[in-house]
Design a protein around this nucleic acid. Structure first.
Lengths: 184, 184
DNA sequence: CCTTTGTTTCTGTCTTTACAGAAATTAAAT
DNA sequence: ATTTAATTTCTGTAAAGACAGAAACAAAGG
């Protein structure tokens, strides 16, 4: 597939960002390519377009499929697997967020809970230190349970909430003023 | 400084997670150590506690200071710099979020805007492709402006919003039903 | 002004990760 | 069943990043 200059720039950048997001460059590039492509591509197409090794494409596609960002699609009269990327931006965002949460937050939550238990029998630990670990744990639990609530909302609703943004905050600040102070 | 078993576990884990968060292990470990420590530590203390090279500590501290997660504190009668970590969990979260946004989202926004402009003169690009790039751009702009609104709210308010979570979404879903449909 | 102590920068090594190319496996078609 | 085409796994190499130790630098105290 021939890449227009703009597509090329987009794909290269997406690859660079990928490395910062914990995905390798090729995976991110392939994802960008398939997202922008207007027809299903087979592995060989991708190899030629991005100039990467066949094996690399194969592994990257497997990873993208495991994330649910790419799906196989068969083209009539062609034995080869063809691939298409999830096209809905909201859905892509949701998938990536969920995946990162799994890798970056959930393990921490697990360890923190273990620490909380072990701290009970840890004679050397200072009370203030234990207290701090606990604060982090409580914070994370609140954050993640909040996230769980929001992630099931339809995009249109989340969008509204985002657009209300600061306004909403002010509203809550006013209505909740009393127990806000109490909490403090 | 002597580490209790629990502290050790916490610090080691924080270091491991750091690597997944785009921070190097030592930086993350030092941050965890200073966060848990109940008194200011000098560089040499850190070297001994974590068994890392002096230079490594120096560079890591510099990075943590540049993020605003660690501050210098002088101890009476001691020439050496001592270091303390920001103790407020909310504040820590805010700093990290902001930093990651800077590294992971802002550059993408820039490139996307450039792409949008360049796509005007890109004769090879298909309309559908340009359209998709645009969708991503619009999405990101909305997300970031929403984030900007929220980040100025006091923790207590954000906490309330999080706790309201799904309830809040339902409320918005009901009240906004009409133009919700219209937006579709 | 020199010595001592603390801090930063530099250099080379080691570890990790990404990747290409080859070999092996699987699956479809004749 | 055999051949052909497609895909995956394996292995070695290359690149990137993290880190230790040494050397250079800076600053405070005598």
């Amino acid at each position: 597939m021939k890449l227009s200059p703009t597509m090329q720039k987009y794909i290269v950048h997406w690859g660079e960002m990928g490395t910062r997001w914990g995905v390798n460059r090729t995976v991110a590039q392939i994802h960008a390519l398939l997202f922008l492509a207007n027809q299903p591509m087979n592995a060989e197409d991708i190899v030629e377009t991005l100039n990467v090794a066949r094996s690399n494409v194969s592994n990257s596609l497997k990873e993208l499929q495991s994330w649910g960002l790419v799906k196989v699609q068969h083209v009539l009269g062609d034995r080869r697997d063809h691939f298409v990327a999830l096209q809905d931006v909201w859905e892509i965002f949701r998938v990536i967020t969920e995946e990162r949460k799994k890798r970056e937050l959930d393990p921490t939550l697990t360890v923190l809970r273990e620490c909380a238990i072990e701290a009970e029998n840890d004679t050397e630990i200072e009370a203030a230190t234990r207290q701090k670990m606990d604060e982090v744990l409580v914070f994370l639990e609140m954050l993640l349970s909040g996230y769980d609530d929001f992630k099931h909302l339809p995009p249109s609703v989340v969008m509204k909430l985002l657009k209300m943004g600061g306004k909403l905050g002010q509203l809550v600040a006013i209505f909740g003023k009393d127990d806000d102070m109490a909490a403090k």
